[in-house]
């Protein structure tokens, strides 16, 4: 969001008039966005967590999969506050798991994968869902076919579908992209392609109603082409359900990935993710609550942050609210 605002004037100063206009619009949006406290907080947290997982491993240079049996089952530093007897070492500030793997490094490394999977799969699902939803809602001719296709994908059982995808594509992808990227592509595509249907149906429902609104009829009567109709009049008005879908989709993708790993369809076991760490630690929850709390908080706060950003953006992009 910030890039066009800061770069555009610097890049093309001579054409002053149109830029002035664009600039003020983006500035308005940013100004409106800044008034939304939740959105600013969300953006801040999202930047923090992104830096945490992206740059964290460079600073806290510990291999997340390296076992260290002598230092297993360490507690995090803050347990010393109420229990001076706790097993603790500064080598493992947030403690270690039953094989002595470092929890902090695990969170960073796992976050990289979870965030990457979550964002990519969510974007894929939202783009596909919006595209199909808008097309089906706007063009009556293809509505039936697209919606029956949606029904079909909704009916497919997820697990056998994934097993088949693994069977058909895993070796090819592994050979082309290597084991880790290959499985990443497979998981992202699998999650993305099985979670766009709700977005598609919601968008379609809204488009069906919007199509009959006065402003659309007015635009049509002056001969606006379909493409312009969709981009100028339809899409901006279905933005808020899309934002909700995106937020929920992010959480859904992160959690689905953990369920897949649990079923043996996800990443290899030496490849931590937030969801998988959470799942594996459930049985140790009573003795070592930190092992579930940290990954759980990371997932929830990331989703919450994205939700607030979505709220803020929606308000900022809505000219009716911005004007007030």
């Amino acid at each position: 969001m910030t890039d066009p605002m800061t770069n555009m004037p610097a890049m093309s100063p001579p054409r002053a008039v149109p830029i002035e206009k664009a600039r003020s619009q983006w500035r308005d949006i940013w100004a409106q966005f800044r008034t939304h406290k939740g959105a600013v907080w969300g953006l801040g947290f999202l930047i923090f967590i992104t830096l945490f997982v992206a740059i964290g491993p460079l600073i806290w240079d510990v291999d997340a999969t390296k076992t260290d049996i002598r230092n297993k089952n360490m507690r995090p530093f803050y347990t010393l506050l109420w229990d001076s007897e706790a097993r603790f070492t500064w080598v493992k500030p947030l403690g270690s798991d039953n094989l002595g793997r470092d929890v902090l490094a695990n969170l960073m490394q796992g976050g990289r994968t979870s965030m990457a999977v979550g964002w990519t799969a969510m974007i894929l699902a939202v783009v596909v869902g919006t595209l199909i939803g808008v097309l089906a809602g706007f063009f009556k001719r293809i509505d039936g076919a697209l919606m029956r296709f949606t029904d079909l994908v909704l009916s497919l059982p997820l697990l056998p579908l994934l097993l088949v995808m693994m069977l058909l594509f895993r070796d090819t992808l592994r050979a082309t992209f290597g084991p880790e990227t290959g499985i990443f592509i497979l998981i992202v595509v699998a999650i993305g392609l099985t979670s766009w249907m709700q977005t598609a149906r919601i968008v379609r429902g809204d488009v069906l109603a919007l199509k009959e609104r006065e402003f659309v009829l007015a635009a049509r009567s002056i001969g606006t082409p379909s493409r312009r109709m969709i981009s100028r009049h339809i899409l901006p008005n279905v933005l808020s359900p899309i934002m909700v879908s995106a937020t929920l989709g992010l959480a859904n993708a992160i959690i689905t990935e953990s369920a897949l790993s649990f079923l043996g369809l996800g990443f290899p076991s030496d490849f931590p993710t937030w969801g998988k760490t959470l799942f594996d630690s459930i049985q140790y929850m009573e003795e070592y609550p930190e092992r579930v709390i940290w990954p759980g908080l990371c997932i929830s706060f990331t989703v919450l942050a994205v939700n607030y950003i979505g709220d803020g953006l929606r308000d900022a992009l809505d000219p009716r609210i911005r004007g007030q």
């Binding site: 999969t65 390296k66 076992t67 039953n98 094989l99 793997r101 097993l163 084991p179 079923l263 043996g264 369809l265 290899p268 076991s269 030496d270």
Partner: peptide, 24 residues
Amino acid sequence: QDFQALIKEFWAEIGIETELRNID
């Protein structure tokens, strides 16, 4: 999976590289 993680490291110590895979 815990065994895999440990054995991978044992074998790394004798110069054998291991890729792990687990299957439903």
